[in-house]
Design a protein around this nucleic acid. Sequence first.
DNA 1: TAAGCGGCGGTTC
DNA 2: AGAACCGCCGCTT
Length: 112
Amino acid sequence: MTNQPIDRFKSQVLLILSEIPKGECIAYGELAKLAGFPGYARQVGQLMKNLPKDTKLPWHRVVNAQRRISFAENTDGYLRQKERLEQEGWLIVGTRLTNHTPPSRQKPEQSQ
DNA sequence: TAAGCGGCGGTTC
DNA sequence: AGAACCGCCGCTT
């Protein structure tokens, strides 16, 4: 339409997103960069928000650069994303993602 | 037209 | 490690 670059941005992002393997996650900025639009992290988030609820795209695999779910904990969006991520093997503590059991306050210090 | 707001990110304190 | 700040860029008011 009138917004060709923007439309392309969406297409690219959604394409890359659909290629994200199960059990893996990517940051908004990372996704934007891979799509060819570095700096468009927020737009990716906006795009995710605008995705239809019945989309089969792995929107839940998109988290922020801090490896955290960008929704507030009490929101339904957070709960949905958490559910889906846990379903793919992720262990989630609060908004934080961990691949396996979190190191119960195990501090590196001189360990090794 | 201007101002504010995000499913953000990187740096700094 | 966590909170605060600023920079970013399109969308909504």
